[in-house]
Design a protein around this nucleic acid. Structure first.
Length: 323
DNA sequence: GCACAGGTAGATT
DNA sequence: AATCTACCTGTG
């Protein structure tokens, strides 16, 4: 197996895919009924740590995949969101609607957060209007967050990109031609596919110690048919408990998988950013992650995970601006 | 050269 | 139960 072409983290490879003038891509179509969205907020949604399969084409436009869908998204100056796909089908349109909107409209969700009694939350909401939680495929989300331990976003993208291009099924055969960045030309491998991959080959995808977790998780899932689907369907607390049975999955990863891959907005993932944010803004210095998670769910309520995403984005933007 | 990065699990206290 | 560490590896 040849060594994959090196790609600078966070950048599209030089041979850009898909080509901007590729006639096989559909024209831009409006995604109706969504909150107006600024390019910076779109960037925060697609490249802010909930998804790892999106690449920036220019200031406004992104190309990425989820499941078997490959498409571009773009936010114009007026805040309208448009999409384009290699073969614009009703199926893609439906898949995108699910991926983007989940079930409930964002505005009403945000409004029901306790911003009226929480000045810091109100400030975060105002800073990122339109920021939302994506509804990603459950299994893919689990895979991505098993890769995430002590890794930065660009590195996680690199890992899952290598997994896709080396072990995932080819996307759009005969559609948009032969994709050269490669990783977007393939979907992520299914858990059944991963179970057949030797751990050494997983390690070769720059997974490091995460390779063993992913390998063992794949074996477990293969040995328990239906386990993943049953877990996705369980109520939040039970689903979280079950996910934590998987090697490499602790409370934080489980909450990310449930929040970003199962639409469980009550999940409140506590990572180092949130730990810092809650210490600094809510007086929780010295609290342990599990305690902060419990506080978050209690304080922000049934949509705590949505609040978390705003706090997270704000803390990262401000943290970078200052320090 | 060396700390650090959006954690987890197993050992040690 | 709480605290400490090893685990891979690219980046700054």
């Amino acid at each position: 197996m040849g060594k994959a072409r090196q790609v600078k983290p966070g950048e599209l490879p030089s041979t850009s895919f898909p080509p901007a003038d590729d006639a096989t891509w559909s024209g831009w179509q409006l995604l109706p009924g969504h909150t107006p969205i600024a390019p910076a907020v779109l960037a925060e949604i697609l490249d802010g740590g909930q998804a790892f399969r999106w690449y920036r084409e220019n200031n406004d436009a992104w190309v990425g995949t989820f499941g078997s869908s490959l498409l571009r998204l773009s936010a114009d100056a007026g805040g309208a969101l448009r999409w384009s796909a290699p073969a614009a089908s009703a199926k893609t349109s439906l898949a995108l609607a699910h991926y983007w909107e989940g079930e409930r409209p964002l505005d009403s969700l945000v409004d029901s957060l306790p911003w009226r009694s929480d000045a810091h939350l109100a400030r975060c909401l105002a800073e990122f209007p339109g920021l939302r939680i994506l509804r990603q495929p459950f299994g893919e989300t689990l895979l991505c967050f098993l890769c995430s331990a002590t890794k930065q976003i660009v590195q996680i993208k690199q890992m899952v990109g290598l997994l896709a291009e080396r072990h995932g099924e080819r996307l759009t055969p005969g559609g948009a031609g032969s994709p050269e960045p490669v990783s977007l030309g393939y979907r992520l491998p299914s858990w059944a596919e991963i179970a057949e991959i030797p751990e050494a080959e997983l390690r070769a995808c720059q997974l490091g110690f995460r390779a063993r977790y992913i390998h063992q998780t794949a074996k477990f899932i293969a040995a328990h048919p239906g386990w993943l689907e049953e877990t996705e369907a369980l109520p939040y607390a039970a689903a979280r408990e079950r996910l934590c049975l998987l090697p490499g999955v602790g409370g934080k990863v489980a909450d990310c998988v449930l929040l970003f891959g199962a639409g469980r907005l009550e999940a409140f993932p506590v990572d180092t950013w949130i730990l810092k944010a809650m210490a600094a803004r809510y007086g929780l210095a010295g609290w342990k992650p599990a305690q902060v998670a419990q506080f978050g769910r209690a304080h922000f309520g049934p949509l705590a995970g949505l609040a978390q995403q705003y706090l997270f984005a704000w803390e990262r933007r401000m943290g970078r601006a200052r320090t």
